[in-house]
Amino acid sequence: MTAAADPVGATPMNMLSAINHTLHREMARDDRVIVFGEDVAKSGGVFRATDGLQAEFGATRVVDMPLAEGVIIGSAVGLAASGMVPVPEIQFLGFAYQAFHQIAGQLARLRYRTDGRLNAAVTVRAPFGGGVRTPELHSEAIESQLANIPGLKIAMPASAADAKGLLATAIRDPDPVMFLEPLRGYRAVSDPVPDGDHLVPFGEARTVSEGDDLVIIAWSYMVEIARQAADRLRTEGVSVQVLDLRTIVPLDVEAIAAAVERCGRVVVVQEAPETCGFASEVIATINDEAFYSLEAPVARVSGYDHPYPVGMLEDDYVPSVERVLAAVRRTLEMAP
């Protein structure tokens, strides 16, 4: 690696500001980029992620859409086929079920169906995740359902810097990317975001904190939970690595294997229900790549196998620091 040509500073901001800032930058960089969705233009999005875009780039490039998720995705595929770079928003990931046939059947396979003639350079932004008292079908973590669809890349940033770097990479990627934003991290996660052009490559996990007694593998807001657990454990003299996958497709198999080989003990944390969650894929990958390095069975901390609960129950459903700590302690107590 050569040193950066111009010294790059950084500005502290939360994830929401980082996303907004990046959308502004990418729309300015490439006039093929078009942002559309429900309430994204005049209101600037229900969370203000798209605030100010219409004022800067006009009503033809930042468009309030009729309320219909299927055609938001379906028309994005057509726009991409025509040479545009669409960045549609699904207001909440739970609403993506109303577009699932377009995501799975069309978006993910334009390149494949046309045997390479056309490609869908589409970045679908959608917030998800618990802890903010939303109504039903707003909080669902359905990343593993998406990961089971060949042809989609799935980025799930956990920091503001990565929100910028992964979103810029997603928009410049020639293939469809599901860019899933943690609702709880929008304002709660804040960190220095590099100024200027900042691209984070897909498929490269990030070590959030170093350690060698145990590794916690997580993505999206669960990285923040894992980090808090690791901080607590450090005060007790336990050295825990936190590995943020950043993208689950493509998956950084090498980083997972290296962490398991070094630590020997693993806890995987996901917000989704346990059965067939992406944690299962991570554990199967460990089985393939680093089984003989394990000193204890891999533990997972998940949501439970019931529909995402109503507000008064959700704090006991979404994995908490306490549940992660309990899983870590159980794993550390097991004899090799």
């Binding site: 033809t60 379906g74 595929v77 057509g78």
Partner: peptide
């Protein structure tokens, strides 16, 4: 939806 998106893209 794809056809409408392609037509939209032509217009843009």
């Amino acid at each position: 939806p794809k056809a409408v998106g392609m037509a939209w893209g032509k217009k843009l």
